[in-house]
Simulated assay, not measured.
Amino acid sequence: MTTASDLHPEQLRALLHFYADAGVDWLLEEEAVDRIAEFEAMRAARGMPARQEVAPEPQRPARQAPQRQEQPRAAAPAPLPNVAIPDSQAVAEAEFAASSARSLEELRTAMEAFNGCNLKTSARCLVFAEGNAKPAVMVIGAMPNADDDRDGQPFSGRQGAMLDRMLAGIGLARADILLTNVVPWRPPGNRPPSQREADICRPFIERQIALAEPNHLLVLGNFAARFLFRSNDTIHQLRGEWREIDVSGRAIPAFATLHPQDLVTAPISKRLAWQDLLAFRTGLKA
Rank of each mutant, 00 (worst) to 15 (best):
S269L: 14
H17C: 09
E38Y: 11
R158L: 13
Q69P: 02
R250F: 03
T121G: 04
A224P: 03
V127P: 06
E29K: 02
A198D: 10
A175W: 02
G47C: 05
M143E: 06
A37C: 08
P135L: 02
L172E: 01
V127I: 08
E95H: 05
L167F: 04
F204Q: 06
N118F: 02
L258R: 04
A55V: 14
V137I: 12
R124V: 06
P184D: 04
L167N: 05
Q159H: 13
G240T: 08
L16I: 06
S88R: 03
P184A: 10
F128I: 09
S122N: 00
S5A: 15
R108F: 04
E38F: 11
E206G: 08
E30P: 07
G171P: 11
R202G: 06
R226N: 06
R207P: 02
L28A: 15
A266Q: 11
G131Y: 01
P187K: 01
P253V: 04
D199Y: 04
E40M: 14
L107P: 01
S194G: 15
A110S: 06
V54K: 14
A20S: 14
K285R: 11
N232H: 08
A41R: 01
T265H: 13
L80R: 15
P154L: 06
A286V: 10
A266W: 01
S5R: 09
A20F: 03
A123P: 00
F128W: 14
G116Y: 01
K134F: 11
A286W: 04
G47W: 07
A224T: 07
G221L: 01
A161M: 14
L15N: 09
L119H: 02
S5M: 07
I268A: 15
E112W: 03
N181Y: 07
Q71L: 14
S156D: 03
T109C: 00
E106M: 00
N82V: 07
L7K: 10
F255P: 07
L284Q: 13
R271A: 15
G23V: 04
P214R: 00
A45K: 07
A4M: 10
L104D: 03
P203D: 10
P267R: 04
R243F: 05
L217W: 13
Q52C: 09
I209L: 06
E30T: 11
L12K: 12
D6W: 00
